[in-house]
Design a protein around this nucleic acid. Structure first.
Lengths: 214, 214
DNA sequence: AACGCTACCAAGCAAGCGCTTGGTATTCAA
DNA sequence: TTGAATACCAAGCGCTTGCTTGGTAGCGTT
């Protein structure tokens, strides 16, 4: 987060993650992370990301927030509804972050680079806890839940497509470029170690950008 | 089937899938698909790919080959060992296919394009049933099993790296290009429909190739 | 004929799963 | 002071899970 400031150094209007979350909570778009439901959602995002949805039990989740397993169903109708809620809130938060990143970019090239970096930050370094769940656990959702999340995702994907079109990637097929990028970026979850001193997220974003837009 | 045979595989090029499988079975690298164990592995590959490992029960698998669930453990020690065996055989088969494709290419550019197409064929259209499991269910494997599969995968990845180096992709980082390609290609499983009249696999391979090597 | 081997069945166990039920402590507005 | 709402506990139900056990039918070899 902080290192990305090199590009937009003199723009103090950017919101911090906490401020962004606060704004979204006030607008009623996100659950207050301090509420019982919010604490459950945050813990679920962490656990589903680490262990996977199927390998996380409601007892694991309950223990994580310090309650008993049955008490979970005072807040959610089913385990699948928890996954659905996590995906929705993650999508909303990631969209706001992505829009903020895209808007503060100067030229079209810089905009696409900012999108790539924003998604990498979402996947790694806890910028958006649970983001990788969107790809990895998609098939764990019922079709109705998939539809709900898909609608929320439209804004996110529109920002991406705009950036790709403007940056004029080769191949003349922005939708294909995006689809390849989704896979390429989300798969970094399996190999990229942000703690490595070898490669930082801005550097990885830069290299990826130059491979897709030479 | 055993790991020592990996280096010794001398498979002539231009074989049909059935002939290729037959050759590998004769060399003892693959389980005979007509044997009980082979039928179980094929069924497991299909089910794990369709429903995911966690959502496939041993009863599902047994029913698929027409036996009772307990009888499975006459052939495998555990459910996880089935997944491990599937991944090993898939890797061996995909490696042989990939090498055959790479060797029959003329120029370096054509070689990389052939690799891309070979992996796309493996993911889709049942050329290598269960190939996408290698990425999607990686975390369902124990660490010891991961190590076993990883060793078998080395040959496969060496072919890829050679092709990328020779094709001179932008960015001057062949390992990164491969890692982005792994994600990009495996993610096509979630959106590409080979039955669509809109885009065939060779066309998709071509477009992907031109995005990564403009 | 007796043996050993492979492939399987029939039955079920122990553990773990998501989820339900009935009740309690606390808070806060009326 | 009462009553409704919230957040949770305690206990456990019904079911599914991976896997085990003891036994058997068929088959090729000796």
């Amino acid at each position: 987060m902080r290192e990305s400031a090199q590009v937009l150094a003199e723009v103090p209007t950017q919101l911090s993650p906490q401020e962004l979350i606060g704004t979204l909570v006030e607008q009623g778009m996100l659950t207050d992370p301090a509420s019982p439901r919010g604490r459950l959602l945050n813990a679920a995002a962490r656990l589903f990301e680490q262990r996977g949805f199927a390998r996380t039990t409601v007892r694991d989740l309950a223990a994580e927030v310090g309650i008993l397993s049955g008490s979970i169903f005072h807040h959610f109708a089913s385990k699948e509804q928890i996954l659905c809620a996590v995906m929705k809130e993650v999508t909303i938060f990631a969209s706001a972050r992505m829009r903020s990143a895209a808007e503060s970019a100067g030229c079209p090239q810089e905009k696409l680079r900012a999108c790539i970096q924003s998604e990498l930050e979402a996947i790694h370094e806890q910028a958006v806890p649970g983001f990788s769940i969107l790809v990895m656990e998609w098939r764990s959702l019922s079709e109705e839940s998939q539809e709900e999340v898909l609608q929320l995702r439209e804004e996110y994907e529109r920002i991406w497509l705009d950036a790709i079109v403007a940056a004029k990637c080769p191949g003349d097929d922005p939708a294909l470029v995006r689809r390849l990028l989704v896979g390429a970026l989300s798969h970094t979850y399996s190999w990229f170690e942000p703690r490595d001193r070898g490669l930082t997220i801005p550097e990885l974003a830069d290299r990826t950008f130059h491979i897709f837009t030479p």
